[in-house]
Every structure is written in C-alpha cells, then in structure tokens.
Nucleic acid binder design. Structure first.
Lengths: 116, 116
DNA sequence: TAGTTAATTCAATGTCTATTGTATTATAGG
DNA sequence: CCTATAATACAATAGACATTGAATTAACTA
C-alpha cells in the first residue's frame, strides 16, 4: 500500500507516529507533565499514579518518535531525567498548525451533480 | 483509572480521540485532502486509491470526533460531500499549539540528587 | 417495477498495543 | 559482598482496530 506520501514536508508515517504517540491518555498526561519541567520516572509514578514499568514503556514510545529525551543524573546514575525536546515540539507545533489551519480550508468545485 | 483530567481546557479523552483519529496514515491523507476542498466518497476512491467501504469507515471516525462533516447533494441524494469542520479545525489547532508550545517548556527544579 | 449507482453496514480476521506481573539490569552505599 | 533503589526488560493477556469481502440501504432513472 502507498504509505510513502508527504504532508506539509513531513513523511506521512513519521507524522502519524507522533500523533499516535500523543493519542494515548496516559502518554498525553506524561507529555503535558514534562512540558512543566524535567522529572524522573519515580516522580511520575507518584504524580500520575501509574506503575513504574508502564511509565518506562510510555516514555520509550515518546522517546522513539523524538518528542522526549532522557539523560542520567551526573551525581547518582540511577536517576534518569526526562524532558520535552524543544526542537521537536516546535517542529510538530508548526506542522500541526499548517495541517489544521482553518484559513487554508478550501471549497473547490464539488464533484457530482451539485458541483458540476 | 483516572482518565477524567483536563489539559488546556479540554478533557483528556476528547483530545486523545481527535489525535487518534488523525494518527492513521489513511485518515491523515483523507483529512489533508478534505482541507483542499469538499469531496464525495467516490472521488476519494480514485484519488487515494482505497476501497469505498474503507473510506466510509475512516470518514465515520473523523466525523465522530467532529473534525469532518458530511451533507447530501440537494440534486442527487445519492452523493454525500464531506468537508473539514472549520470551528473544530481552529479549536484543535489552538489546543495543539498550546500543548506543544516550545516557549512554555519549563525546567523546574529537578527531583533526585542533581536537582535537590 | 426493475436496474443502476453511491454509500453504508455487517461479519470475519490478523495485527497491534496498553496493561499487568515478574524478573533483570544498573548504580550507589554499607 | 550484600542490600537497597531507580529503571528497564520480558512474558502473557485482553481489548482495540485497520483491512477485506459480501451484503444491504438509499436514491435516482428508464
């Protein structure tokens, strides 16, 4: 099947992967939380009331599409801090703004009887 | 499980439903195509090279979350024209712009050793 | 009424995935 | 070495979903 198209300069598959990453309630909560500042896994356990392994899974999904990045604590390597990737956020914000721009909605000549 | 939260004024479930609707490659192509102007199902069959019943299914998903609306031809009621809902597009454009706004990314005091 | 076209609905299927429980890795400190 | 903690990895399961094929509805026309 043809899945290699592009929309607004981005491959369709890449865009849908990002949208799918954000289309889960728990992942959306995680992302919105990370927008408020870096946190470790264990803090998300308390704030979002989710098991640690489930958070690891969701953080991985968000990382794989580039929305989130993680780094280890320099003092105590057991801790990993996750944060929103600024460039990715900006890129997809602009892409979605173009995709959904109401000013760009066009009503071209309709097909069918009414339009022809 | 707590799924009744709100993000930027919208229920989490409603937002994820919209994101999920757009997170399928075919539905994203359909939506992007509808941004270019109203079309009937049968025209999408040709342009996107997908079976009619599959298009009906995807158009229903997009309609159920309010992104797309359909209306029957006044002359020949067999034809149904689908179009992007302008208000919904504007609403979710703004919502996503806020969700992904890179200017709002904060780096609050970290948890763990490095932060404390 | 019969036939044609546009669209939808229904049923079945294979795949993907969110979640849970358990086990393992990695790092730090006694 | 032993223990504890933060995080990840693995395995299993149940539910969701995209796709296909066939059947059905709705509307128009001869």
């Amino acid at each position: 099947m043809n899945t290699a198209g592009h929309i607004h300069g981005h491959p369709t598959e890449e865009a849908t992967a990002v949208l799918k990453a954000l289309s889960d309630p728990n992942r959306l909560r995680i992302f919105a939380r990370l927008m408020q500042g870096d946190t470790c896994n264990c803090e998300l356990v308390q704030e979002l009331n989710l098991p640690a392994n489930l958070l690891s899974h969701h953080l991985r999904v968000l990382s794989e599409v580039g929305l989130v990045t993680g780094r280890r604590d320099r003092i105590d390597g057991r801790w990993v801090y996750y944060s929103v990737d600024r460039a990715a956020a900006a890129r997809w914000q602009a892409w979605l703004a173009a995709l959904l721009d109401p000013a760009q909605i066009r009503v071209r000549p309709l097909c069918g009887p009414e339009g022809g």
